[in-house]
Design a protein around this nucleic acid. Structure first.
Length: 428
RNA sequence: GGAGAGGUGGCCGAGUGGUCGAAGGCGCGCGCUUGGAAAGCGCGUACUCCGGAAACGGGGUCGCAGGUUCAAAUCCUGUCCUCUCCGCCA
């Protein structure tokens, strides 16, 4: 969310930002409400001030003068109540609008309505080439009896999967490699709740908007606030310090969450249905940075979390490209977003495996996540996040890239220690 | 699931209707003292909103949301969270 005072000062920037993102937002309506709100507050507070002053005298008065004061106080009370009642719906509308107001994209974000306008910044690694007929990940995993989609469907419906045998060991090896890498880079691992209260999703800017994509818990422990399954541990990790005032000396916070992730994938019928590319439940290591409100610092962190993810892909021996996500495709909260797309031979295309987002203070304001700077001033933090690794999607690129003529999978050196020194997986 | 206790400032902790944004202590900051330090002494130490160029003035906040009252940290209701005991349990 943006600071209302800042919106007042920069209505054109807000208007232009919303337009670039293709999000309808009526800045003028918001500012009109704000104007009305401030007028009401002013009148109401003057009455309150008189009420307080007179109220203090009441205790010392007696007889007629006391009766006069009490009568006046009753009037004042009614006046205050009237203004409070008028203020409440206005404040509520403002709150709703503020939550909906998009973060203007940074100047260097490419323009465009959707992912077709994403810009390829560079490609890294060499796409795998084969002197045999390569198979896609489904064929490969079936050959090794690593995947059971049919029974998974019976158990849990479409977009479910059962990993089996060495595939499970492979997945765990990849996750372990990811954790060791990110710890090596100075991050603290967190194992976090995946069932969270609604404020955490609002605070990270998923709500309002992503309710349709999120599983809701049917029997929550609380009657009045809904519980939801997170689609990424970004939600739990970023919201971890929500409502706190951190000390600048403790910043930056560099966390990495590991958790299962749950996504309804509503509205994607028929899209990416083959194999384990798009599924309802997966496992992910996610990096999150919380630091001071400084754009240069944030940009540096953004470069760093991008590099961490690139190192992960390098260690897995995967070719990939770095994309600058277009304004219309980056979501309401992002200021700038990089996607990493790994080469997937079976799709004969790059497929998204990582998403690195810089928010400025957009999430922190919603989360009330603040810090005290060196001068003692309280400010909202900046937050960023990026995938380290998400499985099983990365396994698509992995097995398709490292397949050999007989269908077995060559294990890159970096992963071998996590597989008891195995250099090849699968059976011919 | 049953029974009970409690949530106050960075921390500990007092406070059962007005003089309480809140005693006292700890911590922290500044100053005095000292050869230097400790001790000691003094001063200062929450967040937020509105008005104002500022100085400053005012509103709100004692888990959260309502209610009673001229007036609520204090009374009432609901709710969230924490702790203890019993039950169940990976």
């Amino acid at each position: 969310m943006l600071d209302l005072g800042w919106i007042r000062e920069h209505p054109d920037e807000v208007r232009r930002g919303a337009a670039r993102k293709g999000i309808a937002f009526d800045v003028d309506a918001l500012l009109a409400l704000d104007e009305e709100r401030r007028q009401l507050i002013h009148i109401q507070e003057q009455a309150k001030a008189e009420q307080n002053a007179l109220g203090k005298q009441v205790a010392t008065l007696a007889g007629d003068s006391k009766q006069v004061a009490l009568t006046r106080l009753k009037q004042l009370k009614e006046g205050v109540k009237e203004h409070t009642d008028r203020l409440a719906p206005i404040q509520q509308q403002i709150d709703v609008m503020l939550l909906a107001c998009p973060n203007p994209p940074a100047d260097d974000v490419p323009d465009g309505p959707d992912d077709s306008a994403n810009v390829e910044l560079r490609t890294e690694g060499t796409k795998a080439t084969f002197d045999f007929q390569p198979k896609d990940h489904v064929e490969l995993m079936r050959q090794h009896d690593w995947l059971d989609v049919d029974r998974a469907g019976r158990l849990a419906g479409s977009r479910s999967y059962v990993l089996k045998g060495e595939a499970v060991l492979l997945e765990q090896a990849v996750l372990r490699l990811a954790m060791d890498l990110i710890v090596e880079r100075g991050y603290t691992m967190l194992s976090v709740p995946v069932i969270v209260k609604e404020w955490a999703l609002r605070g990270t800017a998923y709500f309002p908007g992503a309710e349709e994509q999120t599983y809701r818990i049917a029997n929550p422990t609380s009657e009045d606030e809904a519980f939801w399954l997170v689609g990424t541990s970004e939600v739990s990790v970023t919201a971890l310090h929500g409502g706190e005032i951190l000390d600048h000396a403790d910043l930056p916070l560099k966390y990495a969450g590991i958790s299962p992730c749950f996504r309804r994938e509503a509205g994607t019928y028929g899209k990416d249905t083959r194999g384990v590319y798009r599924v309802h439940q997966f496992n992910k290591v996610e990096q999150v940075v919380v630091d001071v409100a400084d754009d240069a610092t944030s940009r540096q962190h953004h470069a760093d979390i991008l590099e961490n993810a690139e190192e992960m892909l390098r260690r897995l021996g995967l070719a990939y490209r770095v994309m600058a996500v277009a304004a219309g495709d980056m979501g309401r909260g992002a200021r700038f977003k990089y996607d990493l797309e790994a080469w997937m031979p079976g799709r004969d295309a790059y497929g998204e495996t990582h998403s690195a987002t810089r928010f400025r203070d957009y999430q922190a304001r919603r989360l009330d996540l603040r810090y005290r700077d060196a001068e003692g001033k309280v400010r909202h933090c900046h937050t960023l996040n990026n995938t380290v690794i998400a499985s099983p999607r990365v396994l698509v690129a992995f097995v398709e890239t490292h397949q050999q003529a007989d269908g077995t999978i060559a294990v890159p050196a970096a992963l071998q220690p996590y597989l008891n020194g195995r250099t090849v997986l699968g059976k011919a």
